[in-house]
Structures are given as structure tokens and as C-alpha cells.
């Protein structure tokens, strides 16, 4: 009955309505296209040109920028270095956020007094700017006056002290831990939402069958939260492969020490916007770097979407 009326109505109004459709869509499509889609395409286009300035490309060079990027010193070396750093960075952050986020969410989801408070506290660092967090932690980690080493000494753990941001072995993991510290709240939030979505009866049934907390995690929580791992990981992936602020704040745009913390974001900024004397490669090369970054992010996300079959999840959750 209702359906019939619906069809009837929409057929009556079809002609009249049509007029508004482009009007409603127009502003969105125009702004989104001109300031997001076109610039990204334009960057790809520019990667086939060379030129000093930033307003006009001068000379068409075909794939020369890409050839230099993949074969010539120092372009190749810096690029490959940033790629592997980024992969390491991404893996560390993913591991920490998923593992700690998962267990924190499981703990917070227990019914006890104050669990809501912990949930809100955990999200607080997410609201801060990455820049402020980076500056703050680099002050804390400073070997001369930084408070972190002093706390270690106080806890009689002085032997653990390292030149945190100065050593090529520790700098990248330390920065990855800082970024994980900041964004942990987001992972927890996602896992909490996932846990809230699990049928209470399933959990109760497991209890009655005598499942311990570990079995509960292993057989119920983990499988049902698998899609959430996918979401959290994709978000980290997109964020980390364009991460710039934390490197700027903690390791300068050169990825100190000696490019060991150079990520795609800082590489892109340095080669595109810095002068040649400071590591700039010109706009054309910068555009080539951006294009490769785009392909990596795009292919990566499609890959993840495929693996975690997000479509199914979305239908389930969105309903």
C-alpha cells in the first residue's frame, strides 16, 4: 500500500522535481572538483614537466622526472629511504594502536564505575594538534634537560637511556610511539563502538558455557572485531603515508638524524617547496613524488578494502 503511494507520488512530481537536482548538487560538485579533484590531476600532469617556479610549468620532459626518481642519485636513494621508513613507521603504529587499542577497549568496555571517564580521557590527545604533541615530546626527550630521562633515572631505569631522537635506530620508533600515543583514543573509540555492537546474548551464552576472559577474547571479541582492525588500519595507512606535522616538529623537514625519519610527507614538502640548496628538487619532481604517493595510497586502500571486505561490513553496520 505504502509502496504504491510512493511510486504514484514520485511519478507525479518527477518533472517538477527534476529542476532542483542539478541546483542542489552544483555547489558540492563545483567546489569538490575545482579544489580537490582537479589539483590532484593537475599534480599528475605537472609531473611530466620541469621548471623552477611554482606558478607555471615550463618544459615538457615526458617520464624524465620518474626516471630520475627511480634511477638517479640522490633522488632514488631519498625516495626509497622514505618509502621504507614509511613502511616501518606504518607497521609500528598499526601494531601499537591495534594491540593496545584493542585491549584498552576490552578493559574499558567492562562494566565498572568510571568506564565512561576513561573512554573520554583516552580521546583527549586526539584533539591536540600533532604539531604541539611533537614539540612537547621533543622537549621531554631532550638529553640535556628533558624530563623523560630523568623519570627513567628516578625509576632506577637509567641504563635504558638512549639518545632517543638522535640515533638512527631509535628515532623513527620513538616518533611512531608518540603518534600512537596521540591517536590511541581514536583506535579505542573504534573498538569500543565495535564491542558495543556485539550481541549481549552471545557474550552471556559464552559465559554460561564457562568461557574464561581469554577464551572470550579469542573466540568472540577478536573475530567480531576483525572488520574494525581493517578500519583502524586503513585510517592509519592514509594518515601515515601523508604524515608531515610530526616529522616537522620532532625531526625537521630533513628527517633527522640523516634522513632516518624522513617519511613521504616530509620528503614531498622538502623536495617541492624548499630551495635547491636545502634539498629542493623543483616542482616537477615534487609532482612526481606526489603522484607516486597517490598511487601507493590509492592501491593500498583498495587492497585493504578488498581484504577486509568492507562492503559487507558497511551493509551490516549501516542498516
Amino acid at each position: 500500500m505504502v509502496g504504491d503511494r510512493k511510486k504514484l507520488m514520485s511519478s507525479i512530481n518527477k518533472k517538477k522535481i527534476r529542476y532542483f537536482i542539478p541546483l542542489f548538487l552544483a555547489s558540492g560538485i563545483i567546489i569538490y572538483t575545482i579544489f580537490m579533484v582537479v589539483p590532484i590531476l593537475n599534480s599528475m600532469f605537472l609531473s611530466f614537466y620541469t621548471g623552477e617556479g611554482m606558478s607555471t610549468p615550463t618544459e615538457f620532459v615526458g617520464f624524465r622526472n620518474y626516471i630520475r626518481l627511480f634511477t638517479q642519485f640522490p633522488f632514488k636513494d631519498r625516495f626509497i629511504n622514505a618509502f621504507w621508513n614509511n613502511v616501518k613507521f606504518f607497521l609500528i603504529v598499526t601494531l601499537i594502536q591495534n594491540v593496545v587499542g584493542f585491549f584498552m577497549a576490552v578493559l574499558i568496555s567492562r562494566k565498572f564505575w568510571g568506564n565512561k571517564i576513561f573512554r573520554r580521557i583516552s580521546f583527549l590527545p586526539v584533539t591536540l594538534s600533532v604539531l604541539v604533541v611533537g614539540f612537547l615530546f621533543s622537549l621531554m626527550l631532550n638529553p640535556v634537560w628533558g624530563i623523560f630521562d630523568k623519570i627513567l633515572e628516578f625509576l632506577r631505569l637509567g641504563f635504558l637511556i638512549r639518545p632517543w631522537l638522535g640515533s638512527t635506530t631509535t628515532a623513527l620508533p620513538v616518533i611512531a610511539i608518540v603518534i600512537s600515543w596521540q591517536w590511541m583514543g581514536e583506535a579505542i573509540l573504534f573498538y569500543m563502538a565495535g564491542i558495543d555492537g556485539i550481541d549481549e546474548e552471545v557474550l552471556e551464552a559464552a559465559k554460561i558455557d564457562g568461557a574464561g576472559p581469554l577464551a572470550e577474547i579469542r573466540y568472540i571479541l577478536f573475530p567480531s572485531l576483525l572488520p574494525v582492525i581493517g578500519i583502524v588500519t586503513i585510517l592509519i595507512f592514509i594518515g601515515d603515508f601523508t604524515q608531515f606535522d610530526i616529522i616537522y616538529a620532532m625531526a625537521t623537514t630533513r628527517g633527522n638524524p640523516t634522513y632516518s625519519t624522513d617519511l613521504f610527507g616530509s620528503l614531498f614538502y622538502r623536495v617541492t617547496f624548499q630551495s635547491a640548496e636545502r634539498g629542493g628538487w623543483g616542482m616537477g619532481m615534487g609532482a612526481a613524488v606526489a603522484t607516486i604517493m597517490f598511487l601507493i595510497v590509492f592501491i593500498g586502500v583498495i587492497f585493504w578494502l578488498y581484504i577486509f571486505r568492507m562492503k559487507g561490513l558497511k551493509d551490516k553496520e549501516g542498516a
Binding site: 580537490m36 582537479v38 589539483p39 590532484i40 593537475n42 599534480s43 605537472l46 611554482m54 586503513i234 592514509i238 603515508f241 601523508t242 608531515f244 610527507g265 614531498f268 617541492t272 616542482m283 615534487g286 609532482a287 606526489a290 603522484t291 604517493m293 597517490f294 595510497v297 590509492f298 586502500v301 583498495i302
Partner: peptide, 9 residues
């Protein structure tokens, strides 16, 4: 899924 940063230029 496409970060706008990549269109900066």
C-alpha cells in the same frame, strides 16, 4: 580515500 595533501601543488 585520497588525501587532499597530494594535490597541494
Amino acid at each position: 580515500i585520497v588525501p587532499i595533501k597530494l594535490g597541494t601543488i
